[in-house]
């Protein structure tokens, strides 16, 4: 048997202490991705540190920010009155992800840590630089319909699979991390990485760190927003392309705007240039179309995913239209 040690702890401090003791230890939260990876032989941690009993489930407002504990379930966050009222974009994005059953056990921290769904990554008989360095990228010249069009590398064209994270990057969230040295904060946009020459790394979490929670500034984006996820079936499918869009509009003029895309890159893809273009402009179809075109600069298809070069700008336009028309 591929044995592993199962440990359970009730404080973040002891969890971190257990983690640093063993290089091959992993935190177990909802387990909706980790257990699959273990079953498929993609990963084989020697220690599983069950952190489900660490009290990090709280969702609360502190000053002008919403704090979300790393172990709050996806369902708890999506359904929470604070999130629905103040950060509805996040609630929508969460509900677009996975299935109700998965959302009930999957946690915020786990959602951030989930690994790509690239088929080559999961099949240990196939080449994959992310799983095993130097074996090559199976998707590059293989089945890459689901794969990235932005920020790809020679090593890896996988996409980050989360919906929640697309909303979080748009909402300027911050991640609170803890280690034996204390706590630090990181901008959410800096949490995930591009594949580059290190496709085995999905994020910038250090080996001795634990995700404690999120802090999200309250904004004026709760009225005109939309999370549009285009997928192969209406539920329980990963995004071909998804767009998180939110505005603050006054007299049809865009005061603030947030745009981020999923299903297109190795990390949640914030559309900074498009936002910059739209800020101060009229919320018109023409401007939406121009913003969408701006977003596509440097996009590159790999054959199977060439359709995303058309789908992505279309989805941006449609998401902006729907955000604008939201009453």
């Amino acid at each position: 048997m591929i044995n592993f040690q199962y440990l359970r702890t009730t404080t973040a401090k002891s969890a971190i202490a257990l983690l640093v003791k063993d290089k091959n230890a992993k935190f177990l939260a909802g387990g909706t991705n980790l257990i699959d990876l273990m079953k498929r032989g993609v990963t084989a941690p020697e220690k599983l540190i069950d952190i489900n009993h660490v009290p990090l489930k709280e969702i609360k407002q502190v000053g002008n920010k919403i704090h979300i504990g790393a172990l709050a379930s996806n369902t708890a966050v999506a359904d929470h009155v604070l999130i629905k009222e103040k950060l509805p974009l996040l609630s929508w994005a969460l509900q677009a992800g996975a299935s109700a059953q998965l959302r009930n056990v999957a946690t915020v921290g786990g959602n951030m840590m989930q690994r790509t769904r690239c088929g080559y990554f999961y099949d240990i008989e196939m080449p994959c630089n992310k799983r095993q360095s130097g074996t090559g990228c199976g998707a590059m010249e293989g089945f890459n319909r689901m794969h990235a069009i932005f920020g790809t590398s020679e090593q890896c064209i996988a996409v980050h699979p989360s919906d929640m994270c697309i909303a979080l990057v748009a909402l300027d969230a911050e991640v609170v991390l803890a280690s034996t040295k204390g706590e630090r904060k990181m901008l959410f946009k800096d949490f995930h990485r591009l594949a580059g020459d290190t496709p085995h790394l999905d994020n910038n979490l250090k080996a001795d760190e634990m995700i404690i929670g999120l802090e999200i500034p309250i904004n004026n984006l709760a009225k005109n927003y939309h999370y549009l996820k285009v997928r192969d079936r209406a539920s329980y499918a990963f995004a071909l392309v998804s767009v998180a869009a939110a505005f603050e509009i006054a007299d049809n003029k865009i005061i603030d705007v947030r745009l981020a895309m999923g299903g297109v890159a190795h990390k949640p893809w914030r559309l900074t240039a498009s936002e910059l273009f739209l800020r101060g402009k009229e919320a018109s179809l023409n401007n939406f179309e121009q913003a969408a075109q701006l977003a596509m600069k440097d996009a590159k298809g790999f054959g199977g995913n060439d359709f995303k070069l058309k789908l992505a700008p279309n989805t941006i336009i449609e998401a902006l239209n729907l955000a604008k028309s939201k009453a």
Partner: peptide, 23 residues
């Protein structure tokens, strides 16, 4: 199937899409 290897690439219920209630 990835015809270079002769192996199925979407051989699971997340990637082989049977319709769900929402469809």
């Amino acid at each position: 199937i990835d015809h270079r290897y002769g192996r199925y690439i979407n051989n699971n219920f997340a990637d082989y899409h049977v319709p769900v209630n929402a469809d």
